[in-house]
Design a protein around this nucleic acid. Structure first.
Lengths: 337, 337
DNA sequence: GAACCAAATGAAACCCCTTTCCATAAAGGA
DNA sequence: TCCTTTATGGAAAGGGGTTTCATTTGGTTC
């Protein structure tokens, strides 16, 4: 059974498809369709349960009421939570989300943008990676709204929602220093992203502010491509070789979890003599014995700002107005446990 | 700058749009376009970086190369992991995913299906909830491929990928009984889903098999609508009022996590005298002290089967063949820690 | 009563692509 | 020479909407 089309409605109501279209789009008043007609047609639409074909509509109007969401990995709890919040808010405004994970692979990322473009998504929400600058610039020059979050790309002028990463690790490191820690390790990942580097900078900054010499031997760089097991193993080696470490700041949620696995394996107790701070909070850190302090990124607020910015961009897209570029930087909170 | 259209290519190449279209769609050979022409046009397409408008293509062909994914909550790690795997596999076959969370709200769920329909998604992957039967039947009667997973709806004939839920809690309960537990509690949620009921049945079955009388007082039903805090509080009350409980099986991942919070709050030790088994594995259970046993659902295999079924359905959709209905039931594993 | 206007609706172009059917020219056959 | 093939491409009809512009009334105005 073929789905209904606007023609069927027009025929049934004995009017032109134009009239039906105007009524469907709430332009009936403006187009001076009579009240009687409006009521009559609306009744038929409801009776038959007609829903206009969104694809045809998109073809004609050029907008799809779809937002493309590009993140590194949708199964990462940080992104999954944000995706859920974004989806929820977008839905209320009639937008749907198409998502994809880049897997931190620049070719896949570029391919995704091309694909989204071919699908005419109206706007993009991107947690970007290095190398996407040109592609994003291309979108912007087509007047397509783009909001970037979580990471920013230097030299790219686009609305952005970030968390102050320097501040996050600064607070964490500072707290450890105040607890008298002298050999604070830093564990990070070899992803070429400003935010990751900023987290290192925050660590550096806190050390410098307290006149502690940075010891590169206790800064560990884990390959992104590592499997979970490889990461745990690397960490075990690292902490075994550096027994003087009396505290550690992890640059990401994922690393901190692997760290906990590592300490479990090593039977290395986490206590007053060995403190751990994670980046991004998680139930794991609340339930762990002992509980683990964490730098909490305000997920709800990030999602809020992102969706607000993108909706604003979408609403402005076919006016003359220049889309407003905003750089929002939120602060994370150190949750001390 | 307007995006290129097939017309621009045709003009540039001095051929008709028909020819370009055939070449784009790999039908050039069949349509006996000369090699020279193919090479020439392909060169121009590549030079100009032309990509056909997917919306127009969809309107004409009726397929969008899009799969709708409907789950209860995309931020639930179980669904997020599956979503990631599904997305990845779909992507390799040229399909994109549009997703939405039902939030266990039947009206939203029905709205989603309508919206996906209007967007002409080619196929549906649904973790359904009670009340969607008619909507899904409607899809099937339009010959739209649907694969249902995680939950099944009684009386609905559709390809399904399930995990044997009875078996899961049966194994869990049986293991506890073998450890000499006498008062095994069961904590579940008031969601009207067969799978959730099955988990209860598995618990019941194991008790019966061991001639242990089921004590309804130690079976707790938590409202789905509860907040995290409310759930924890309810659980605290429950365990406080029933000190004789010497083991507990949680019917969902989420509940088990709340349970751990509850025990932490109560300072109730988990040990030989009080055993806990969770449903769905999670890093939390591996890292917890002590580690927590869990019923592991084979996520990767679920995703594999789901995507295989949906792709098969999609490939058959415009042939005469009747789409094959398959019911796949996978087994979960009890991971004893 | 001619000219004009507002109100209410419809015709048709257009969005960009796919696909069926047709057209043309060169080559082959009788 | 005339007719039939074969090889190549093109014209045009949708697919289902939206939107511009035209048309039809009946009513006003002078």
């Amino acid at each position: 059974m073929k789905p209904l089309s606007i023609k069927d409605i027009a025929k049934k109501a004995n009017v032109s498809i134009t009239t039906v279209s105007f009524i469907l789009n709430g332009k009936a008043e403006k187009m001076r369709i009579s009240q009687d007609m409006i009521i009559k047609v609306e009744k038929i639409i409801k009776e038959l349960g007609f829903r206009p074909n969104q694809v045809a509509r998109s073809l004609r109007t050029g907008n799809t009421k779809t937002i493309g969401l590009i993140v590194e990995d949708i199964s990462n709890p940080f992104f999954a939570s944000i995706a859920r919040l974004i989806e929820d808010k977008a839905y209320r405004h009639g937008y749907k989300i198409i998502y994809s994970s880049t897997e931190n692979n620049i070719d896949k990322a570029k391919g995704l943008i091309r694909m989204f473009k071919a699908r005419q998504v109206d706007g993009y929400i991107i947690a970007p990676m290095l190398g996407m600058e040109e592609d994003i610039r291309g979108l912007l020059s087509d007047r397509t709204p783009v909001v970037v979050f979580d990471r920013h790309l230097p030299g790219l002028e686009v609305s952005t929602v970030l968390v102050d990463n320097i501040d996050g690790t600064y607070k964490a490191t500072q707290a450890l220093i105040e607890q008298g820690k002298k050999n604070i390790a830093f564990v990070t990942v070899d992803v070429e992203a400003e935010e990751i580097k900023d987290r290192y900078k925050g660590y550096e900054k806190a050390l410098k502010a307290n006149k502690i010499k940075l010891d590169e031997n206790i800064c560990e760089l884990i390959p992104f491509a590592n499997s979970a097991e490889e990461t745990t193993r690397d960490l075990v080696n690292f902490f075994t070789e550096n027994p003087k470490i009396d505290a550690v700041v992890f640059a990401t949620n994922y690393l901190a979890v692997r760290g906990l696995f590592c300490f479990k394996e090593m039977k290395k107790p986490i206590n007053e003599d060995f403190k751990v701070i994670a980046y991004d909070d998680h139930d794991i850190f609340k339930l762990h014995s002992p509980t683990i302090s964490a730098v909490y990124q305000p997920i709800e607020e990030i999602a809020d700002q992102v969706i607000t910015l993108i909706l604003k961009g979408l609403s402005v897209v076919d006016t003359f107005e220049e889309p407003e570029l905003r750089q929002i930087v939120l602060l994370s909170t150190l949750i001390e446990r």
